[in-house]
Design a protein around this nucleic acid. Structure first.
Lengths: 376, 376
DNA sequence: AGTTGAGTTGAATCCCATG
DNA sequence: CCATGGGATTCAACTCAAC
């Protein structure tokens, strides 16, 4: 390895902020709070958590220290049970927050049995809720006894580590995924069944609450970048790991039960990563190289003295030699003057102002695209 | 009044369990906790509550075209801390539970700002959650800055007074309302606008958060019987009262602000009770859901990297992770790129683009049909 | 009368790099 | 820390005027 290569490698490592010993691509078979406690501060970009939904269903419930809570049926002990679930929830949410990078985000999925307690806990701990997302099941289990509404959805909470986190949201990719309409907070996705459902040795389902890959696909595509580290503290059959691998994200799984670990390991090993070009998504406008308006004037694409107008020709302005424009007695950038004529607080001059071209009005933004294309 | 009539009247009164001084058909202009405290134990069948959401909005927000969003900035929505909001929430939930009949139910509506705190509080207090219901707005406000998923829903919690309540659920009526399919936990209902929206003196909206009558219609039809007493502790413009009157339910409103009381009073006075036949007119179910191309990619029916081509193989394109396709140096939806390669103004990508399947070209539309069939 | 198009609006935790 | 300024960003439904 020569010096240049060595420096480049070191830089890449620093950019990713990856301590060499981070167990990416591994399933840690341990209690999730203990496993997270062994990881350094601020080391993962996203946490996806599908915790036990808990309570009232007859399932076992464990205190943070590991002891089992007895099933009970009187009011006093019921309160105790909620408290125990809260202690458990707050314990793993706190560790999760510690290992999240400052701009990292958390996703949690749950039902009405537990999601209100989880949501209140994460607000108390300092997370900042960005959205609650409704997974609307296209094929839910009916309510056989006709005593309630068919429980046809689950709720996910998306939260950043803190209020001022500058989190990742691939807005354009989400919009593209939804036929060029903004992606909404209600997602229609079928439940996990058929060939996707992991089986145990006897042909039964390997895990009672396996989540569909389509759900994780949207979560990871929306809120992580390629190479990001995603941790799942309730790994189960490894849906998070499988989709992360497919999309070129790094992953860490935590799962206590050996039978699930085995299934997850095999599943992820047989998952292929998409090739580089297939993994591409619509880039945000901000990620494109910035073109100052002056560059268009300098390059001759726009000649000083040109008249520009808004789409409905309500206002006109003249382009000056220094790429400022002049309207209603004021001079300034295309953005500033666009805002001034409208009396608006701000304005995108690229899309507001237009130029006459063969009898048609063309937004300045079209010229910017032309300029960018010419750069290659 | 003869003896038989007197006995019949007394029986009817006892059946309804209506103390003579219950203020049905009245709006109590008071703080809701005080007003409820003045009512006897176990006197109402249902409580519908639309409490302040504690939105915690920052500065102004502007639409892309420059206009300012009219935000909810009223004093009644301001709380200093989560603790203060919780104290308020637990106080009204406790009084509400005291005045509910043993088999009574509570409905609360909220957003991610407050609903998790409300849900956790009512579980702690002893209510028993029966469903969480998602009001999916058909026409929500977009996310103007492209920073999050469009907040397109609100959440309602339906809870009985206690775990052993024998609550009212009109299963058959709900099934009829949903074209003979079980009513699900996600309801598609438009926001309240147009002629239904109550106006103030100057033609502006009378209340910033008026709920649609269709929402209350479904709630009251599902979970009350004719003649039941419904109380709303955050009455606002009186949607609950108007729908209750329409459906022949008795109502009690509590509202602190005199300007809202005035609007509600006038609104309910001009509302007519439906006769039995009119009440059976039900809205029909929404049309089949639209499938975005992205759903096929997420579900694995189409793998990113797949090559698609037109029927005569003149053009090819590759599918990317966000369901955009890539051809002649451009990226975009199947419709947009289909139009671009042909130089046409528009194109139906579903029928234009095809996929190789066992040596034959299959239009993407066939895969869409497959996806819809799998949904059931 | 019916159609078209511009304008308005709704419970919203709504930017970020640079100096 | 704050101030500055470039420039990114919207969907469905209703109202009303124009034709």
């Amino acid at each position: 390895m020569n010096m240049a290569t060595r420096i480049a490698t070191a830089e890449r490592r620093a950019q990713r902020a990856l301590p060499i010993d981070l167990p990416v691509g591994q399933i840690l078979q341990r209690d999730c709070v203990e496993a997270m406690a062994a990881l350094p501060d601020a080391c993962v970009d996203m946490i996806f958590a599908d915790p036990p939904y808990n309570l009232q269903l007859g399932g076992d419930l464990f205190r943070p220290e590991g002891s089992r809570v007895d099933a009970v049926d009187d009011d006093w002990d019921k309160f105790d049970t909620f408290e125990a679930y809260d202690r458990f929830t707050r314990a793993w949410l706190r560790e999760a927050r510690r290992i999240l990078k400052p701009n990292g985000t958390l996703w949690v999925i749950g039902s009405y049995h537990n999601i209100f307690r989880v949501g209140a806990a994460l607000q108390d701990i300092g997370y900042w809720i960005l959205n609650d997302i409704i997974w609307r099941k296209s094929n839910p289990m009916p309510n056989f006894r006709g005593t309630r509404f068919t429980n046809a959805h689950e709720t996910l909470i998306w939260a950043s580590r803190s209020e001022d986190s500058r989190y990742t949201f691939n807005y354009r990719a989400m919009k593209a995924l939804n036929d060029e309409l903004q992606m909404r907070s209600d997602w229609v996705i079928p439940i996990c069944s058929g060939g996707e459902r992991a089986k145990d040795g006897e042909g039964g389902k390997a895990h009672p609450t396996q989540k569909p890959e389509a759900l994780l696909y949207r979560v990871l595509l929306a809120c992580t970048n390629k190479g990001d580290v995603v941790l799942d503290p309730f790994f189960g059959t490894g849906t998070t790991g499988a989709v992360a691998r497919r999309l070129g994200r790094q992953w860490i799984g935590i799962e206590r039960e050996s039978r699930y670990v085995k299934v997850a390991r095999a599943r992820i090993d047989s998952t292929l990563e998409l090739d580089e070009s297939a993994m591409k998504i619509m880039p945000s406008r901000a990620a494109q190289p910035k073109v100052p308006f002056g560059a268009l004037v300098e390059s001759g694409l726009i000649v000083p003295g040109t008249t520009v107008t808004d789409a409905r020709r309500r206002w006109t302005a003249r382009v000056r030699a220094d790429a400022t424009i002049d309207a209603i007695g004021q001079q300034g950038s295309i953005h500033k003057i666009g805002a001034a004529v409208q009396g608006a607080p701000s304005c995108n001059g690229w899309t507001f102002w237009h130029m006459e071209d063969a009898g048609r009005l063309v937004p300045l933004d079209a010229l910017r695209q032309q300029y960018l294309a010419a750069l290659g």
